[in-house]
Write a protein that binds this DNA or RNA. Structure first.
Lengths: 158, 158
DNA sequence: TATTGTTATACTCTATAACTATA
DNA sequence: TATAGTTATAGAGTATAACAATA
């Protein structure tokens, strides 16, 4: 944190919570994501997980086994990355790769018991960090933020 | 960057606008940022700009000339990256690097007339895209989202 | 022909540290 | 000793395309 104010005669050379225009929305989203990523990644690291592994575990524990292509959709990553993420999880025995008889191209990824235990542990560790992240918001505003972001990300859905 | 065309619309991969828990906040922020980045970057590309160049131009046009370290603070990038971004902008004659007599280590970055013209053009082109991005939100909700994100990103400020 | 998953490769980004010139 | 800026480099992340198996 440098004292940008004395850097030049610009009245407010510090950064920009004052700029409320939608124009800064992209930058705002980047910083928000960065803040959340840093905090959550720090908690997951001791468990040997990265956020993308955690994202896959969330999907699997929340919605059940699904194909890798479905996981690609849910997490928004690409299929090449998903192969490596599932490789990692499989190596740690957190998930298994099964086959779908109806379509033998598809690999069904399912969480193991051990995987669910690790997820529960991660869940427990991450929860207070999330609470800390949203601490600047008033009660109810977190749900509001999640609601707005959800509708922003998934247009066309109610 | 993901190809939204492939990820959407999709048959029914059971993905997650239903999960409203704060747990998906990180993933939600990633997808939201990705969506905004893809859209804005597409508009800026014909102008020879990337979003980080645009972020610097926004700061300079909005708050006036400032040092590179101040730009690092505003944009949230690191100083090594900022050197290259300012290099790019300087090469295109969009900004100039000046010196601060009081501290000759500091390089004051100022937007040129040409730079401001390009910024205005970019601003004009990006505005409707932002409007399109926030179209799923009701009137007033965009300001609400920006407000919540701002307080999320800059805790400790009113 | 199209799609799922896989692999290999190339490219971009970022993080880091070393270096200068100033303070 | 500390800071602003610069440069070089290594590592991680991502995109791309080619490929095999299946539809």
């Amino acid at each position: 944190m440098t004292n940008a104010a004395e850097a030049w005669p610009s009245p407010r050379a510090t950064d920009g919570p004052d700029d409320r225009s939608a124009f800064a929305l992209g930058l705002l989203l980047r910083r928000a994501h960065d803040r959340a990523l840093t905090a959550v990644a720090g908690v997951l690291r001791p468990l040997g997980l990265e956020t993308r592994h955690f994202a896959v575990l969330i999907a699997l524990c929340d919605k059940g086994a699904m194909s890798q292509s479905a996981l690609v959709e849910v997490t928004g990553s690409d299929r090449a990355t998903m192969v490596r993420v599932v490789d990692d999880l499989e190596r740690e025995l957190l998930v298994t790769r099964g086959t779908l008889p109806a379509d033998r191209r598809v690999r069904i990824v399912a969480v193991t018991e051990h995987g669910r235990a690790v997820f529960d542990r991660a869940h427990t560790d991450v929860a207070p960090v999330i609470d800390g992240l949203v601490a600047p918001l008033l009660p109810g505003e977190t749900d509001r933020l999640v609601d707005l972001l959800t509708r922003f990300v998934y247009p066309g859905r109610a």
